[in-house]
Computed example of a mutant assay.
Amino acid sequence: MSQKHPIIAVTGSSGAGTTTVMKSFAHIFRRENIRAQVIEGDSFHRYNRVEMRAKVRAADHGEGPQISHFGPESNLLAELDTTFAGYAKNGGGQVRRYIHDAGEARELGGEPGTFTDWQPMAESDVLFYEGLHGGFTGPGVDVARHVDLLVGVVPIINLEWIQKLHRDQNLRGYSQEAVVETILRRMPDYVNHICPQFSRTHVNFQRVPTVDTSNPFIAKDIPSADESMVVIRFAKPRGIDFPYLMSMLHGSMMTRPNTIVIPGGKMGLAMQLIFTPMILRLLDLKRRAG
């Protein structure tokens, strides 16, 4: 952690909805005129798309252990740790982008599934990370220790699978069988490396559908925000004005001293209400640290 150079990280698994949260933070940054250096978790993958597919095929044929983007073997987590540490110390470092599709290829140059070159960070007020490993700790690596505000985005597992199935089938052209294989391949890494991060977060958002998702593999559509509730858990509730939040978030209720449940459609508003004062507090500490 660093008062001079604060770091905010949103962590959640693929298909969890972290991109939606990223847009909420972008709105806060824009409204409050905050310069944020954005790091996408995908940019710290160890392998490009072709290399990763080759690694997966080899593992499927018994040539080495199973591998997934959830685990440390396929990510540059020591380098992410070093990047966070460097930013916390001097407000700078190196960043690159992972090129996801043809649109980004036109914007960034290069081929889909590859990386841009490393470039120096721009001058910024905060570092903002969105990806799989913002709260990761492991042998010789402790990414979480550098983060001043760590946010988890964790839909219940059936909803997460529904979102992934629909995205990968409809937007990326994968068969259901291929998506299910990926889910099964990732499960050990999900249990061992993704879930533990949500015990280190300062705030968790967990979307829970209010419709039947018992069999996610036959779901025809993704439950909408209005068909969901969101459970918001604060690790340290002291200083959180729960009466104010409940007055602003109609239909909300408290279920534990550190937990508020809100209608799914109010998740964006809740993020504005919760994170704006937190971010401004970080920037006030930054100014005081000089």
Rank of each mutant, 00 (worst) to 15 (best):
residue 235 A to C: 11
residue 216 P to H: 13
residue 42 D to P: 00
residue 158 N to L: 01
residue 60 D to F: 02
residue 35 R to F: 04
residue 66 Q to D: 15
residue 52 M to D: 03
residue 186 R to H: 07
residue 30 R to G: 05
residue 174 Y to D: 05
residue 199 S to C: 00
residue 64 G to C: 00
residue 50 V to R: 11
residue 241 D to K: 07
residue 214 S to K: 08
residue 36 A to W: 06
residue 75 N to T: 00
residue 56 V to S: 02
residue 8 I to Q: 14
residue 24 S to A: 06
residue 219 A to G: 06
residue 102 A to W: 10
residue 218 I to H: 15
residue 164 K to F: 11
residue 289 A to L: 00
residue 1 M to R: 12
residue 114 T to Q: 14
residue 73 E to R: 10
residue 238 R to G: 08
residue 147 V to A: 15
residue 79 E to P: 01
residue 131 G to F: 09
residue 41 G to E: 03
residue 105 A to C: 09
residue 123 E to Y: 04
residue 156 I to F: 02
residue 261 V to H: 03
residue 199 S to T: 13
residue 42 D to N: 10
residue 123 E to G: 12
residue 155 P to K: 04
residue 199 S to N: 06
residue 250 H to K: 12
residue 182 T to Y: 04
residue 47 Y to V: 01
residue 6 P to C: 05
residue 274 I to M: 03
residue 277 P to K: 02
residue 108 L to F: 15
residue 84 F to R: 10
residue 171 L to D: 15
residue 253 M to R: 12
residue 3 Q to R: 15
residue 6 P to W: 01
residue 278 M to S: 02
residue 152 G to H: 14
residue 117 D to Q: 09
residue 118 W to S: 07
residue 286 K to C: 00
residue 160 E to H: 14
residue 286 K to L: 01
residue 23 K to H: 13
residue 182 T to D: 13
residue 26 A to P: 05
residue 7 I to H: 05
residue 140 G to E: 01
residue 79 E to C: 03
residue 4 K to S: 15
residue 105 A to R: 13
residue 7 I to A: 12
residue 2 S to D: 10
residue 65 P to F: 09
residue 150 L to I: 07
residue 96 R to E: 07
residue 130 E to C: 04
residue 20 T to N: 05
residue 125 D to Y: 06
residue 176 Q to T: 09
residue 15 G to V: 07
residue 234 F to N: 11
residue 149 L to E: 15
residue 21 V to W: 05
residue 95 V to G: 11
residue 238 R to E: 15
residue 26 A to F: 07
residue 79 E to N: 00
residue 81 D to F: 03
residue 215 N to S: 06
residue 110 G to Y: 07
residue 233 R to G: 06
residue 111 E to F: 01
residue 235 A to D: 15
residue 164 K to Q: 12
residue 165 L to G: 13
residue 186 R to V: 02
residue 208 V to W: 06
residue 262 I to F: 00
residue 163 Q to G: 14
residue 96 R to H: 02
residue 94 Q to G: 04
residue 194 I to G: 01
residue 290 G to A: 14
residue 14 S to K: 09
residue 18 T to M: 10
residue 114 T to N: 07
residue 62 G to Y: 15
residue 165 L to R: 01
residue 242 F to I: 10
residue 188 P to A: 01
residue 176 Q to M: 15
residue 58 A to F: 01
residue 260 I to S: 01
residue 162 I to C: 11
residue 41 G to C: 09
residue 73 E to W: 10
residue 204 N to I: 07
residue 71 G to N: 11
residue 145 R to W: 12
residue 202 H to M: 08
residue 222 I to Q: 02
residue 130 E to F: 02
residue 51 E to G: 05
residue 5 H to S: 08
residue 66 Q to K: 14
residue 125 D to M: 09
residue 150 L to K: 14
residue 152 G to C: 14
residue 159 L to F: 13
residue 277 P to N: 09
residue 270 A to I: 00
residue 116 T to G: 08
residue 201 T to S: 12
residue 27 H to C: 02
residue 15 G to Y: 03
residue 127 L to A: 04
residue 19 T to E: 14
residue 280 L to Y: 00
residue 179 V to M: 00
residue 81 D to Q: 08
residue 276 T to W: 07
residue 81 D to R: 04
residue 33 N to D: 14
residue 215 N to T: 06
residue 79 E to R: 07
residue 131 G to I: 05
residue 287 R to C: 08
residue 217 F to K: 06
residue 77 L to F: 06
residue 10 V to R: 11
residue 266 K to I: 00
residue 257 P to F: 12
